[in-house]
Design a protein around this nucleic acid. Structure first.
Lengths: 147, 147
DNA sequence: CAAAAATAGATTGTGCGCAACTAGGTTGCT
DNA sequence: AGCAACCTAGTTGCGCACAATCTATTTTTG
């Protein structure tokens, strides 16, 4: 029996990953106006968040945290440095390693950023329960797709 | 009382959107090897899927389907045209409108693409139930973030 | 200890996403 | 008819993501 149109695997409305992809894009768009006051992109904001939490970190460690490599991070870190938010030093023990740390200006930004997650929560119009389910689903998929 | 470190809003592990963002990136990486045989990127594959389903569509309609605008779609459609997969015609009724349709080569690709969703399902290592929850969560967020 | 292997990060090139803007066509209003 | 308002698509410029490749340094190993 020939596969009918409605039972095909190739229908947009059936695609889980497309829903994920579209939601992720929409999320980025929703963050944008909240981050313009900080003059940060979403990824820059995430990297700053890691630094607010850990103070200092090399590129490798940072990459592990945010699941990205130097191809993405190096130019981004240069831009953050150009904005005066971070310092990109070399390790004394291992000259290959870049040690990323916050500048005073970068540290100070943290207070202004505190409200961003709350505003985003509000924009989502979802309950904590719904968001927790979404987060756990995403983390499960992420874990399963590793290597 | 001062907010303690662990109760801050700005901890990476608390970020729902970061989980979504990371899962979406991981999804794109997982699709890549499945799509190299078709010589398509993920978004190109999605656009082809829309065309396999609807045969013909203008840029506006396509944009509504995939939640993207001409700034993203125009260059992508030019690349698909350059590969010989689609035809970008002008509407006779309204000269502003581009009518996108499948070439024979583009139509034929559908058979080769049929297995891709199955392979991806396997890669996810998740049950249909888990994936349905993920899909519905993403669709809810996407809907709530619209304008 | 010298050559080989491994590692950290930087670089290059392609393709998105998206905001802002432009060009050109259509519609509506008087 | 004339023209303003609107609409569709295209263009530009920036910042990711990512594979592939490169450089410089460190570690391992014969």
């Amino acid at each position: 029996m020939k596969t009918t149109e409605t039972s095909s695997n190739l229908l947009l409305d059936k695609q889980i990953c497309f829903a994920l992809y579209s939601a992720s894009n929409a999320m980025g768009r929703a963050y944008r106006p909240l981050l313009t006051t900080l003059d940060l992109t979403y990824l820059q904001y995430i990297v700053m968040m890691v630094l607010w939490q850990y103070s200092t970190m090399n590129v490798k460690e940072l990459g592990n945290k945010v699941h990205l490599d130097s191809g993405t991070l190096t130019p981004l870190l240069k831009r953050l440095e150009a904005k005066g938010l971070i310092i990109r030093a070399r390790s004394k023990e291992d000259e290959r390693v870049r040690i990323i740390s916050l500048s005073d200006q970068g540290s100070e930004m943290r207070d202004k950023a505190e409200q961003v997650p709350t505003e985003m929560l509000c924009k989502s119009k979802m309950t904590i329960e719904e968001l927790t389910i979404l987060k756990q689903s995403c983390e499960l998929l992420l874990e399963n797709l590793k290597e």
